[in-house]
Simulated assay, not measured.
Amino acid sequence: MASAQRPASSSDSDRRYANIDERKRKRMLSNRESARRSRMRKQKQLGDLAEEVSTLQKENSQISERISAAAQRYIEMQSANNVLRAQAMELTDRLRSLNSVLHIMEEVGGYDVVIPEIPDPLLEPWQLPCLIQPIFASVDMLEY
């Protein structure tokens, strides 16, 4: 407490204020530098996020195009299936007509004819009488 008794000289006071001012100035510079680094970090994060958004939008667009192409192929295959089903029904009807003619020939003419039974294609389409034929496919049919 000896210093409390002794009056402070103006040079001691000036040095103390100089030290406080110097610390304040260093702290301000440090804070400015820290804020600058923080802004740069945020700017880089924003740039990275913008790049990621762009990449995801591009991927989304490509996936949408592939979905549209697959949907179009599905519609085309569904249409082709409908045509094939109609043709199968028409051929089944013709076969039934021919079988009825064979029945008439058997009854009227006395011929012994073996008439195959025709399954109903709507109930059991997997039992349609047909020759075993290979199914040809291309790589394009399997792309999606």
Rank of each mutant, 00 (worst) to 15 (best):
K26R: 14
L123H: 12
N81V: 04
A50Y: 02
L128P: 02
P134E: 02
R66C: 05
L49A: 09
E52D: 08
S30A: 15
N31S: 09
L123R: 12
Q133D: 15
R32Q: 14
S11E: 11
V113E: 00
F136I: 15
L131C: 01
R15W: 13
E107Q: 12
M141H: 06
Q72S: 11
S97C: 07
I75D: 09
P119A: 05
K26W: 09
D48S: 03
F136N: 07
L49E: 11
M89D: 11
Y74H: 09
P116S: 03
E107A: 12
Q78H: 15
D21V: 04
N19G: 01
R27S: 09
A8G: 02
L102R: 01
D12H: 14
P119G: 05
S10T: 07
L46V: 10
Y74V: 08
I67C: 07
D120K: 05
R94C: 04
M28G: 00
G47V: 01
S64D: 10
V114W: 10
E117Y: 14
S34K: 14
K44G: 02
I20V: 10
L49P: 01
E90P: 00
K26D: 13
R25D: 08
L84K: 13
E59R: 15
Y17K: 06
I115A: 03
S97P: 01
I104T: 14
A2E: 08
M77Y: 06
E90N: 08
R27N: 08
G47P: 01
D93P: 00
I135H: 05
T55N: 13
M89H: 12
L102G: 01
C130P: 01
A35Y: 14
V108T: 09
E22S: 04
G110Q: 05
L142T: 15
P125G: 01
M77E: 05
L91R: 08
V114P: 01
S64N: 06
A50F: 01
L95V: 07
K42F: 13
L56F: 06
Q127S: 11
Y74R: 06
M1I: 08
I67D: 07
Q5K: 03
V83T: 11
L29M: 15
G109L: 11
R36H: 07
Q43I: 11
E52S: 03
M1R: 04
I115C: 04
A18T: 11
E90V: 08
I20D: 09
R27D: 10
R25C: 03
P7E: 10
M141V: 07
Q133G: 10
Q72A: 13
M141G: 00
N19P: 00
N82Q: 11
E106P: 00
R36Y: 12
V113N: 00
P121Q: 09
S38V: 06
Q127N: 13
A18D: 06
D12S: 15
S3Y: 08
L91V: 05
Q5H: 07
M40A: 09
R25Q: 10
Y74N: 06
A4H: 13
R73D: 04
A8Q: 11
R37A: 06
L131M: 03
E52V: 04
N82L: 10
P129F: 02
L123N: 10
G109M: 02
I63G: 01
S97G: 12
G110I: 02
V113Q: 00
E22R: 05
I115K: 00
Q133H: 14
E107Y: 09
Y144L: 10
V139R: 06
V53H: 04
